[in-house]
């Protein structure tokens, strides 16, 4: 049971890790582009905006298991096979890109327009605005968005068992459901809960540190993060946006 579980754990992390990386790398520019090309944006372009928006909506509206099947030939073209961990990464990433892109869009939209203007008044171009303002200023929020995406991908990855990718979800179905080994299933549920709690905590702490810096100063950061562990909760534990 032990080797089964650790192998499944590793498979899940492998799939989730790679697809998160791809989703962030592709979703970030896509989300920024959605903001830039929107009406009143820096490179307003209604056609591009509508096309990206529609593609994002279509992919997001597709149930993951259908997406996985629909993308089979694409997956084969990319990784040479439709079975196994690598084959699962492709649909996972494709499904997560639009998800993350929408979250990025929301985060970037919240950046104060005055900052964009300030950089423009210094002679900065659109690329400068993206690099020096939009991304760094929305970083705490982008970290939260990444956390949400990772958790969503972990959920999707349970379905990856259908293409023989293994992972915790697959194990739970084959042993827990089909072989009535409830103990193993509950164990997997516990492992998943712990994994998600750890990821959420790491993401929240990261976002909180950056939020604090951008928010009210005062206590040193390290102390504040530590305070999050203490019973009774830290002062102002919920990340708050200033301005």
């Amino acid at each position: 049971m032990q080797p089964l579980l650790s192998q499944a754990c590793w498979d899940t992390l492998y799939m989730v890790g790679w697809s998160t990386l791809i989703a962030v790398l592709a979703g970030l520019p896509l989300g920024v582009l959605l903001v830039l090309t929107d009406r009143g944006g820096l490179v307003q372009n209604t056609v591009v905006n509508k096309v990206i928006g529609q593609v994002v909506n279509i992919v997001r509206s597709m149930p993951f298991i259908i997406l996985m099947v629909a993308l089979m030939s694409f997956t084969r073209w990319i990784v040479g096979t439709t079975i196994g961990r690598e084959a699962a990464i492709v649909p996972l990433a494709v499904g997560a890109i639009p998800f993350f892109a929408r979250l990025v869009e929301t985060s970037v939209r919240e950046v104060d327009g005055g900052l964009v203007e300030a950089v423009q008044s210094m002679g900065g171009n659109t690329w400068t605005v993206v690099r020096k303002v939009l991304v760094p200023e929305s970083l705490p929020s982008l970290i939260s968005a990444t956390t949400t995406t990772v958790v969503a991908i972990i959920g999707y990855s349970a379905m990856a068992g259908t293409v023989g990718a293994g992972g915790l979800g697959d194990l739970a179905i084959r042993y827990g459901y089909q072989r009535f080994e409830s103990e193993l299933m509950w164990l997997i549920v516990a492992v998943l809960a712990v994994v998600i709690a750890v990821i959420q905590f790491a993401g929240d702490s990261g976002a909180r540190v950056l939020h604090r810096r951008a928010g009210k100063g005062g206590e040193p950061l390290r102390f504040r993060v530590l305070a999050g562990f203490l019973p009774g909760g830290p002062v102002g534990a919920t990340p708050t946006k200033t301005r």
Partner: peptide
Amino acid sequence: LRQARSGIGMVFQHFNLLSSR
């Protein structure tokens, strides 16, 4: 135009400083 702008300083009512820097 961007080059010309860099020769014109501007200060704002709400300061517009980058909070991440």
